[in-house]
Design a protein around this nucleic acid. Structure first.
Lengths: 116, 116
DNA sequence: AACCTTTCGCAACCTTTGGTTGCACTCAAC
DNA sequence: GTTGAGTGCAACCAAAGGTTGCGAAAGGTT
């Protein structure tokens, strides 16, 4: 019954640092562990681990460039992630609406039964 | 530059178990730690801890009923969470589209410069 | 009332994950 | 070839998710 989501993908974007990293890669273009760490409140090594996580689920991929490793967002995979976000969102949204409708129905019953 | 999201709220719904719990509470109505644990792959105590987390960020609230504690979703707060999901989603979506447009522009340049 | 069952909360403990520091290696530039 | 920036690996720490074990409270049964 629960929305069919890829837990790996979700937990990858569930971390606030990783979300910010994706944000940075999208807004500033490809970057390295070092360049990203300069714009984040954690060390290069921590960033490196996060990059490994994102790489493992395919949200980003690395391109060796000399002594550097340039990471960039995999657009298709991120699009999938976005789709899952909106899927879960709309599922909950629909349920909330249904609940609200039922609540209103009950409210009406009360009103008609007990005369306000 | 990153989407303005409530990290507490995000990390609350970032956990797959907690997401499923919200799902269950929405689809089956209010439940207890015990009732939820029967439908989840973790123990009652683990569920109890998750309920505490969700309660702390206001996504659910408890109602003592005899020896039981009935938890139910706070609709307004969940609506806020859904809004944040879609906010992040659409931010990324917009950036992806922009990148795609730029990529196509570059593609066109190549085509016109190198003549195919 | 006494008893048994269910549900809960607390505490101890283990494992994974995110974070840090330290160090050795590589590649580029001088 | 030396120096400097960027990487990767390893050890170590703290917090989070999970488990078991136990004792307490509420409800049903006899």
């Amino acid at each position: 019954m629960s929305a069919v989501v890829d837990d790996e993908l979700w937990s990858a974007i569930g971390d606030p640092i990783r979300r910010t990293m994706i944000d940075l890669l999208l807004s500033d273009g490809p970057g390295t562990a070092t360049s990203l760490s300069r714009r984040l409140p954690v060390t290069r090594q921590a960033v490196s681990k996060h990059l490994a996580v994102l790489d493992r689920v395919g949200l980003i991929h690395a391109e060796p460039a000399g002594r550097e490793r340039h990471y960039q967002v995999d657009e298709a995979q991120l699009a999938r992630a976005v789709a899952q976000l909106s899927a879960v969102g709309s599922t909950w949204d629909a349920r909330l609406r249904r609940i609200k409708r039922i609540a209103e129905t009950i409210e009406r019953h009360h009103t008609s039964n007990q005369g306000g």
